[in-house]
């Protein structure tokens, strides 16, 4: 597939904002977040790479974490977006929509011509 490389890059670039989007409002623990992302087709190819991503978001102050005991397994680290994270997500969402519109427009005009 010619576009595979492109989508790998796109996925890599957009994944952190998908993570931030899932962490708006409610805190989620790592495993739950990974499952939520994996349920969406094509978003995550290697689940393990989400953890380093979460660690980076925390270092950058875009998410914060807290530990909670769980009934069924080990203690869970819950992630939730900080105000900075929500702000970054809002900025990205606006840019992303503009970007998608532009690409769509060009793809469609190409198809017509």
């Amino acid at each position: 597939m010619v576009a595979e490389k492109v989508f790998t890059q796109l996925r890599r670039g957009t994944l952190e904002f998908c993570v931030l989007a899932l962490l708006q409002g409610e805190p989620r623990y790592g495993f739950e977040l990974v499952k939520a992302l994996s349920d969406v087709d094509g978003m995550v190819t290697t689940e393990g790479t989400i953890y380093p991503l979460l660690a980076r978001l925390r270092r950058e102050g875009l998410v914060e974490t807290s530990w909670q005991e769980s009934g069924s397994g080990p203690p869970r680290r819950y992630y939730t977006s900080t105000p900075e994270g929500s702000q970054a997500l809002a900025a990205f969402t606006a840019d992303w929509q503009r970007f998608c519109t532009s690409v769509d427009k060009i793809l469609q005009s190409g198809r017509r011509g």
């Binding site: 623990y29 689940e47 393990g48 979460l54 080990p74 869970r76 680290r77």
Partner: peptide, 8 residues
Amino acid sequence: DMKTHIAE
């Protein structure tokens, strides 16, 4: 994180 994920 990986250990926890596997345990989960």
